[in-house]
Each structure stands twice: as C-alpha cells, then as structure tokens.
C-alpha cells in the first residue's frame, strides 16, 4: 500500500490508543508508483505533525522517512534511530510531551476528530492545486500561505471539536464550557453564537441567569 494512503485521522487514532511513536516510511521522491503518493504522504504527515504539536504532543513522535525497498541497511538505520529517539522521549504523556496523561488522550481524541473532519481533509486535498495552479480565484499560494490556512483550521477546529464533544454529553453553558476546556470564555461565546447560526446547536434552557445550549443531531 502507498504511504499516500495513510490517513491522518488514523495517526491521531493510534496515539489516542497509547502508541508512543509512529514512523511512516515512503519511497524516494520520483520513485512513486502512483507518481506523487509519497509527496502527498509527506505533506499529510507534516500537517498532522503541526496539529499534534498544537494539541500538546511531542512532535518527534511522528516521523516521515524515505528509503527504497532494496535498502535494508538504510531501513534498519532509520528504525534504530527512531526507536532511540522514542526511548529518549519516553511513554506518551509521561513527561516528554507538553500535555501529560491522561489529558493527552483526550487531546488525541480531539485531534482525531479534527483530522476526520471535512474542513481539513478538503483543504489538505487542495494542496497541490493551491500551490501549483491556484484556488478558485486563480491565486497561487506559497507554502507559507498554505501553512497559515492549515494552521487557521487547526487552531479553530481543535476548539470547536472540543466544544462539540462536551455538548454531545449534555447541555452546557458558555461559562461551563470555558471552565471545562480551558478555552477563553469570550472565544467560547463566539463559537456558540456561530454554531447556533449554523443550526448545529440550540438553546436548551435558561436556568437562573445562565443559558444552556444543546446539540441538534445532524443528518448523515
């Protein structure tokens, strides 16, 4: 199977289950049977690494390396080096990551939800046209501009997915969400307003001086 087929959501899912390191080894650029599968793979893993780092994972836990199927010695070297590095960092959430266990697993769940989401998958898929032929307006992106677009989705979708996960467990207030998720309450207020505008949540009740919101189940 081509490394281009490795789904970023699967990567986050693996870390959620307690994996300590993951190395994706693809062919050298130019050697891909599917022409650009390995280029896609590297781009996807770069983006996945940005997201995992953003939510608090040591970014060295996810590596993308290249070697050909005939290079046994090179492969052994890559694996030993990666193994060595992971041993240095230690088990996931055990002090080698900015966020410790068990919170790190909740963060990985969020990362999985973001990476399984339509927004980031669609924009990742647009990488080649954006960088080469341009977007719907014919604007060709630099890699830096593309990274900013991806980072924008990473920052906001991480917060939105955390809010949605809480709401799936029951009605919540803006204040309650902010406290549970350590997201500034004024940002939670804006997200809640936006989710309501999109028809994804509605007012559940007002208790004392606190409005509570509940999720509206979506079709499909």
């Amino acid at each position: 199977m081509c490394t281009g087929r490795v789904d970023p959501a699967m990567v986050a899912g693996a870390f959620k289950k307690g994996l300590d390191g993951l190395m994706v080894v693809g062919c050298y650029f130019g050697d891909c049977h599917y022409i650009t599968g390995n280029v896609q793979a590297k781009a996807k893993m770069d983006i996945t690494r940005r997201l995992l780092k953003h939510v608090g994972l040591n970014q060295d836990r996810l590596a993308f390396r290249q070697c050909s199927s005939g290079e046994a010695a090179v492969f052994v070297n890559l694996v030993s080096e990666f193994d060595q590095r992971i041993r240095e960092i230690g088990p996931i959430g055990g002090g080698g990551d900015p966020v410790e266990a068990p919170d790190i697993f909740r963060k990985m769940e969020t990362a999985e939800a973001v990476l399984a989401g339509e927004k980031i998958r669609w924009v990742i898929g647009k990488r080649t046209p954006f960088l080469e032929s341009g977007n719907m307006y014919g604007e060709v992106f630099t890699q830096h501009e593309f990274n900013r677009a991806i980072d924008m989705i990473i920052v906001e979708e991480t917060e939105v997915q955390e809010i949605l996960r809480e709401l799936r467990e029951g009605a919540r207030s803006v204040k309650g969400l902010a406290q549970a998720l350590t997201i500034p309450s004024e940002r939670v207020f804006k997200y809640i307003t936006a989710l309501k505008r999109k028809g994804m949540i509605k007012l559940d009740k007002v208790s004392d001086r606190t409005p509570y919101f509940q999720i509206i189940p979506q079709e499909g």
Binding site: K126, H144, E145, R148
Partner: peptide, 13 residues
Amino acid sequence: RCLSCRRCLGCAL
C-alpha cells in the same frame, strides 16, 4: 511572521 491575511480561501468546499 506574516499572517497571510485572507478571507475566502477559494477551496470550493
């Protein structure tokens, strides 16, 4: 440091 300010990305989602 440039924020590459942009509204619609033109992604056509």
